[in-house]
């Protein structure tokens, strides 16, 4: 089977600071990969590279057969294939919930407005936010904002969804509703790469768990392999710390 994401010897540094060191990672279609690791280990940077928000110095990333390197032009065309959900939602505050969701459709895909609204309704329905279609982001809770942000990314019909700590800015009682949406997305067969410290989610949904440390993948396997039987001492230390 062809890989949906294929990362080969990816390196990224900011000045002298090496943030990603020669990362290799393949993700199959419909696979859900959860990335864990200490703060500063490069998790966000890796996701941002997969969405080409950061330009790596070295290595290639192949998305659904299309290879991208530091010389590739027209990155915005490839980005449509990859949806991204941010820790702080990043909804557009000057647009209603519905307009947030259809912005990509009308501006990027040039879908006619009426049709975009139909698709937008379907997406909002999916995340249980249709009743808030006409309000501004300032009027809804954090969990609701994140669900709208997921709908906004899904509206572009991406092949891959990236989540960077999607629940870590939320009050504890709002985490569940967002994880529920992510879980049903995984069940529908979406290819997902998720940075999270929600271990319940990792146990239930992840096909593979990756532990990153200082810009490298030091351990990976099923949830049970990584959690119950970690091979690496650093993984052990990290896990004892978060559980």
């Amino acid at each position: 089977m062809d890989h949906m994401i294929k990362i080969k010897s990816l390196s990224k540094s900011y000045g002298k600071l090496k943030v990603l060191k020669n990362i290799d990672l393949d993700v199959s279609p419909s696979e859900v990969v959860v990335i864990i690791g200490a703060s500063g280990s490069g998790k966000s940077t890796l996701l941002r590279c997969i969405n080409f928000l950061e330009k790596p110095q070295k290595g290639t990333i192949t998305i659904d057969g299309k290879e991208v390197n530091h010389k590739t032009k027209n990155l915005h065309l490839i980005r449509r294939e990859v949806g991204m959900v941010f820790q702080h939602f990043n909804l557009f505050p000057h647009m209603t919930v519905m307009n947030n969701v259809i912005e990509g459709l009308t501006q990027v895909k040039k879908v006619p407005h009426a049709e975009a609204i139909e698709q937008g309704k379907a997406m909002l329905e999916k995340v249980g936010m249709l009743d808030k279609a006409d309000v501004y982001p300032a009027m809804i809770s954090g969990g609701q904002k994140q669900r709208v942000a997921i709908a906004r990314a899904l509206a572009m019909n991406p092949q891959i969804m990236l989540f960077d700590e999607p629940t870590s800015a939320l009050d504890p009682e709002l985490v569940g509703e967002v994880l529920q949406v992510m879980k049903s997305l995984a069940e529908e067969g979406m290819t997902m790469v998720v940075v999270t410290h929600e271990m319940g989610f990792a146990r239930e949904v992840a096909d593979r768990v990756i532990y990153m440390d200082e810009g490298q993948i030091v351990e990976q396997g099923s949830f049970e392999q990584v959690f119950d039987n970690p091979q690496n001492d650093r993984t052990k230390a990290f896990l004892s710390h978060i559980i």
Binding site: N51, L53, H76, L77, R79, R80, V82, G83, M84, F86, H88, N90, L91, F92, E103, G104, Q107, V108, K109, A149, R152, A153, M156
Partner: peptide, 23 residues
């Protein structure tokens, strides 16, 4: 304007010009 706004637009596939004008 928060950096995240630009990134959200870019990750939807908008061009730099579109992000500037719309977001």
């Amino acid at each position: 304007i928060d950096r995240g706004q630009k990134e959200a637009g870019i990750s939807l596939g908008m061009t730099g010009g579109q992000v500037m004008k719309r977001i």
